[in-house]
Design a protein around this nucleic acid. Sequence first.
DNA 1: AGTTTTACTGACACCATGTCAGAAAAAGTT
DNA 2: AACTTTTTCTGACATGGTGTCAGTAAAACT
Lengths: 212, 212
Amino acid sequence: MTPTDPQQASSKAALTRAAILRAAGEFFEENPFRDLTVGGLMRQTGLSRATFYLYFNDLHGLLETLLEGVKGGIVEGAHKWLSNEGESIATLQDSLRALVDVGHTHGAILRAVSDGAPTDARLENVWQSFLASFDEVVSARIAQDQAKGLTPEFDPLPVARTLNRMDAAILIHAFGSPQKKEKEEVLTALLRIWLSTLYPFDAKAALQKESP
Amino acid sequence: MTPTDPQQASSKAALTRAAILRAAGEFFEENPFRDLTVGGLMRQTGLSRATFYLYFNDLHGLLETLLEGVKGGIVEGAHKWLSNEGESIATLQDSLRALVDVGHTHGAILRAVSDGAPTDARLENVWQSFLASFDEVVSARIAQDQAKGLTPEFDPLPVARTLNRMDAAILIHAFGSPQKKEKEEVLTALLRIWLSTLYPFDAKAALQKESP
DNA sequence: AGTTTTACTGACACCATGTCAGAAAAAGTT
DNA sequence: AACTTTTTCTGACATGGTGTCAGTAAAACT
């Protein structure tokens, strides 16, 4: 019924919808969200401006859809450490590397969402909830390592929140604009901070591999 | 000549300008930037909408002015640690506490600026430059402590950038909306992360005072 | 009281948005 | 193929906030 149904087959509608999303994605590789207009976007697709509103409520709705696409990759990348199987330090390293990878490839979209969120209550809520969803799981993981004596005792939730906001902020800053920073530089800094904070007893050895 | 001159005496113009700024500040205590309109703001002051444009180029220009006002407090608060006099850990604690204080009292304005930045190239530049200005000084401070052997060796600039973005993000998140978080909770988390990262050899003692 | 400077305002044109009635194209039916 | 229905698309409109400008009102000065 509703043409915005994601599980639509490759009907004409689904193709059109995908074309709009693709045009937006390309736009964000080179331009900030504030320069996107419905008219400009649809000119890129060859369709009329009104057509846009058949597929999305507004530009913020489109961002919501784009974020959905990135979400999976991030959750999957973080899974290794969060799943609590395997050695803590090594899996945290893996998960952070995966996070940086996703941030690097989808930086433009993350920036667009983050930029667009403040101008729309609904998108802002989606974005904040997205970020907050990691707070709880990270906090839980920290609590487990505290129980094992790997991590010092402290209230895990505020630290998890702070580290997560840090990740989001630095990824968007480093990879959100066309001049992307080096992946390694970003990862090294994140690793140092996360490991020092969560595994201060054993982090030294793991971190020295980075800067001998 | 220009009525936007900050050093104007208490002429009528200066009073009007101040009234507009005050109204905006009050507005942000309760509402997000996206809900601010020139009309609504000026209705609050009793003046006409057109008058606004005698004092500011647009709403983003107003935000720029508000940020100026907060800037001083932040720089001053951070000065203690950055000035590189006195014991490292203790002064970092002081500076972070001062930062959290400023964030707590001016959280609404910081959030408004951060929210408004993505919709205006000029303000975005001001905001990013503001954040970046701390990267260099923090990085320099880290380098000095590395020379003293207090801080492990690593490339200080990326770590400084990451920690600074973290500060901004968490302050805005914690104190930017009417339901502010507890200052102590925020400070404790920041302290743990900063100290663990920069002073891993001595941080333990300092941090245990927080959670015995 | 009259003049000049300062402070303010109503009215206008502009631009992107979101909607809606209806056109065009595709798919289905006989 | 003709015609019917469903899907997809569009031109034209009303709305709302913006920034400007010519001109008014108030204050300060003489």
